[in-house]
Nucleic acid binder design. Structure first.
Length: 584
RNA sequence: GCACCCGUAGCUCAGCUGGAUAGAGCGUCGGACUUCGAAUCCGCAGGUCGUAGGUUCGAAUCCUACCGGGUGUGCCA
């Protein structure tokens, strides 16, 4: 396998060339390479059935002919025809061993960069300011951070942007709340908690106090008009909120390249509305301005053309702008500043319609940028309903993380007393954090992001089975072999020979890692990484049980297999934002 | 009303560019620590893939209808 080439691509090309040659075709057929059920082989080719129909020949005959050519390949140990015309391929262990040795020696573990590098802005986390982060923010934050790392690992230039909701109508209410009940001492002490109280009180009062509501609207208008006093208040709100956010991000180990909230685009909104009017895409209706898809030409999904389909409003009748306006301005900004090829929005699936509209508008404007909405489902409680606290509120993020670490702590202390863990006293705090937070992240990332999932409090920190700590544990076991053997883990390389069945099983998984990383990046699916890591960890554990490493005749080769396993586990976990411990 | 998503083992979930006997974890039951770490490993049991049709050599996967659950839907984000 040469240079920048994925295993799947390599095999596909080899197989395509072989099929073309042995069957004497004019064009290269798609060999329909699929990972096979292990009892049948490593891969299977399903092209014979399709070609049979096309060529008017028996699929099995075609398969038999192709198999002869495939058997001649270096990479292939066997090619057997089965069923209606499946070709089962087994890779040659010596060939796989060579691939693995090369990956172990490579800087990038064999993950070569994509052929066409893109500049991609990933919009994630994006909480509203003046509110503390709640459980609903964790998915965008964790999934978004993982997607940033995945795209980087695939070779792209990535800008992680925290698109804060820092310019909404909440500020009019907050300013009024502060005026009515403001308490500097409380604000100093409780920070964002106090802001929330003020907001809640103000929102309640607004409902049956028309004068108060007007005053809030007035305050908002003044803020947006650039009034210095209001601006200073806003900045104070921002500083308080930012402090609370930083604490959460620090806890989660998440960082951003940019913090361009909605406020960053305010002076562009007028221009956006003007531009859309000028292009004839937007029009005024009932005092508001918006894009009415029914009346436009161009590439517009059918459903948007139906009567009653909601318009994309960019200016309210009171003259204020919508978040839709900001989102258009943001796209234009990303084009100007970075010449971005792609923008990715890691936002709740419930906003799917908004993004469909936004993307359609961008296309109508002639903006040449790939735009993807990476949606995700809700976290449900064990009653199948969205997580709520006893008083009906949405649970806050910080206490949730506290609880995760606390559960990890309890379990770790138990296991230490039983003498099963080897964490030094000095490393305990770090271990609680790495294991506790790792468990939370893994539990979230291992599911297909699109579906809602049920979070059972008792499984908050899953420590066995397919879990973060399980993978961390297998990593620590490997490190422990190196420590015991007095071998240098960093930089260890050696040729890999695959003789034992368990070695081959482990190798089968290891060799797929570059493919998995690229697929996960392309499809924005971190759970594919989890799946792979679990398979590697699990295959390693079986290998560990059956194959002695230190002192065996195969010691060097097995150490190399161990080293590559550990590197993949560490690398994969780091893509997910999860750390490892050398000892645990 | 219109649009979108989801119904897979007791529970939580993979699998859905159609491919062979539908896979994991948890839980149950039974084995394995004088041998590199038992948060581990090995094994048993557990399924009308919501229902009914259709397309296909082949459907959990694609199409249609229906049942059940969720979400969005003109001036919140």
């Amino acid at each position: 396998m040469s240079g920048a080439m994925l295993l799947s691509q390599h095999l596909t090309e080899l197989a395509a060339a072989t099929l073309q040659e042995t069957l004497g075709l004019d064009e290269r057929p798609d060999p329909l390479l699929r990972a096979a059920n292990p009892q049948h082989g490593d891969y299977q080719l399903n092209a014979a059935m399709a070609l049979g129909k096309k060529l008017g020949r028996k699929p099995r005959d075609i398969a038999e002919e192709a198999a002869v050519g495939l058997r001649a390949l270096d990479a292939v140990a066997s090619a057997e025809v089965a069923g209606p015309g499946f070709i089962n391929l087994r890779l040659r262990p010596s060939w796989v061993g060579q691939q693995l040795s090369a990956a172990l020696a490579a800087e990038n573990l064999g993950i070569d960069p994509v052929a066409t590098k893109e500049t991609i802005v990933v919009d994630f986390s994006s909480p509203n300011t003046a509110k503390s982060m709640h459980i609903g923010h964790i998915r965008s934050t964790i999934i978004g951070a993982a997607i940033v790392e995945l795209l980087r690992a695939a070779g792209h230039e990535v800008i992680g942007d925290n698109h804060l909701g820092d310019w909404g109508t909440q500020f009019g209410l907050l300013i009024m709340g502060l005026r009515e009940w403001g308490d500097d001492e409380a604000l100093e002490r409780d920070g964002v908690e106090e802001l929330e109280r003020l907001y809640t009180q103000a929102a309640a009062k607004k409902k049956d106090d028309e004068a108060f509501a007007d005053a809030a609207r007035q305050a908002l208008a003044e803020l947006q008009g650039g009034d210095p006093e209001k601006r200073a208040l806003w900045e104070r709100f921002m500083a308080i909120t930012r402090e609370a956010f930083d604490a959460v991000y620090d806890r989660l180990g998440v960082t951003f390249d940019e913090w361009l909230g909605e406020s960053a685009y305010q002076d562009r909104l007028d221009g956006v509305v003007g531009l859309l009017l000028e292009k004839g895409l937007a029009k005024e209706d009932q005092g508001a301005i918006g894009v009415f898809f029914q009346e436009l030409e161009g590439d517009i999904p059918k459903k948007m053309r139906k009567e009653g389909y909601a318009p994309f409003l960019i200016r309210k009748k009171d003259g204020a702008f919508n978040y839709a306006t900001t989102d258009v301005a943001t796209i234009l900004y990303r084009q100007e500043r970075w010449d971005a090829d792609r923008s990715v929005y890691v936002v709740d699936t419930r906003q799917g319609q908004h993004f469909e509209q936004l993307f359609t508008v961008a296309k109508l404007m002639g903006i040449d940028m790939r735009l993807d909405h990476v949606g995700f489902g809700k976290i449900l409680g064990d009653d199948g309903k969205p997580l709520r606290t006893r008083d009906g509120g949405v649970p806050k993020l910080m206490p949730f993380l506290d609880e995760a670490e606390e559960r990890a702590r309890v379990r770790i202390e138990e296991l230490r007393e039983e003498g099963r863990l080897r964490i030094e006293d000095a490393d305990l705090d770090e271990a609680f954090k790495t294991i506790g937070i790792g468990a939370v992240k893994y539990a979230d990332l291992r599911q297909n992001r699109m579906t809602d999932y049920r979070f059972e409090p008792d499984k908050l920190v899953e420590l066995s089975g397919n879990s973060g700590p399980y993978i961390q544990y297998q990593y620590a076991r490997i490190r422990s072999i190196f420590a015991k053997g007095g071998q240098n883990f960093e930089g260890f390389t050696a040729p890999i020979a695959l003789d034992h069945e368990r070695e081959q099983e482990l190798a089968r998984h290891l060799v797929k890692y570059p493919d998995v990383v690229h697929t996960a990046a392309e499809t924005y699916q971190p759970h594919l990484i989890c799946e792979h890591l679990y398979e590697v960890a699990s295959a390693f554990s079986s290998f560990y049980g059956d194959c002695p490493v230190l002192g065996s005749p195969e010691e060097k080769s097995r150490l190399a297999l161990c080293a590559l396993s550990a590197r993949q586990l560490e690398h994969g976990l780091s893509l997910l934002g999860i750390g490892v411990l050398e000892k645990m």
